[in-house]
């Protein structure tokens, strides 16, 4: 079957597999992480047609024909290989988490949140961030990063 991932059409062999393992094992997109496998920790978060989705609970066949976006699909690479980070990525560099494992969840959740709601309240940020466990305890920075990303996006970045 075919899958739309980060704007490209990719051929997938294993149709009876979960999206997470297709991304990691078959497509080599290891920026999406396994953390619990039962949809709680959020490390496997991707966007499917713009909506936050736990790839560890998503049969790959159920997303055929939909647009899947992973952490690798956010930054733009321009001429000469110059990388332009998405505002959410930029905000998380300014307000870093630590070990990087839960980042896909926090970043993808924030991207979806800000697409739907350009000016979230602190409660709305918490509601969105609350789906992702960060054992390094970087939640203060998640709040700051999401608020900062909203600011960057409003600034037209």
């Amino acid at each position: 079957m075919q899958l739309q991932v980060n704007g490209k059409t990719r051929q997938v062999q294993r149709e009876d597999e979960l999206l997470l393992w297709v991304l990691r094992d078959e497509l080599g997109l290891t920026g999406t992480h396994y953390g619990c496998g039962i949809g709680i920790c959020g490390s496997c978060t991707v966007l499917v047609d713009g909506q936050v989705t736990r790839s560890c609970l998503t049969p790959v066949a159920s997303v055929a024909g939909k647009a899947v976006t992973t952490l690798e699909g956010l930054a733009k690479t321009g001429r000469g290989g110059a990388v332009t980070l998405h505002p959410v990525q930029q905000a998380f560099v300014e307000n870093p988490l630590q070990c990087g494992w839960c980042l896909p969840g926090h970043v993808m959740s924030a991207v979806a949140l800000l697409n739907a709601n350009p000016a979230p309240t602190p409660e709305q940020i918490d509601d969105s961030a609350g789906i992702n466990l960060c054992r390094c305890g970087g939640y203060n920075n998640v709040r700051k990063a999401v608020a900062r990303a909203a600011e960057l996006k409003r600034g037209g970045l």
Partner: peptide, 19 residues
């Protein structure tokens, strides 16, 4: 200072054992 490790973590280019 901003962390040197974040550009790779933030773009999904970290290299962990299971990767």
């Amino acid at each position: 200072l901003k962390r040197k490790e974040d550009p790779r973590f933030i773009t999904g280019a970290g290299n962990y054992t299971d990767d």
